[in-house]
């Protein structure tokens, strides 16, 4: 029972972080600040949900899989945030210079 309650609190907290991330994505004024809001929020969100479910996973194997999913998602989020931010920066500079190579 107590375990169920902890899971409920953690998953709800995770959902709250996802909602906050989406809110940031919708409300922040420019590309780079939106990126900043998103990567922090959605990784914490997934982390809390994974933590909550790991308590219910039954076997250690499932719990390990859950943590691995979270770790992979974090690495992917970090990489994409860096790449997309850089790409946006570069293409804006290219636009400003007016030299369109393509």
């Amino acid at each position: 029972m107590i375990l169920d309650a902890i899971t409920m609190v953690l998953t709800l907290g995770g959902l709250a972080f996802f909602a906050a991330g989406t809110l940031g994505l919708l409300r922040f004024p420019d590309t780079h600040s939106r990126l900043h809001a998103l990567t922090k929020a959605d990784n914490l969100g997934l982390g809390l949900i994974v933590l909550g479910l790991a308590l219910q996973a039954g076997t250690p194997g499932n719990a390990i899989k859950l943590v691995l999913i979270w770790a992979l998602a974090m690495i992917a989020a970090g990489t994409t945030a860096q790449l997309i931010a850089r790409s946006a920066l570069v293409s804006n500079l290219r636009k400003d210079d007016g030299d369109r190579t393509r």
Partner: peptide, 13 residues
Amino acid sequence: GTLQSFGRFLPAI
């Protein structure tokens, strides 16, 4: 760079 490091790391997993 980021892309290359990612490309080195991910295939193992």
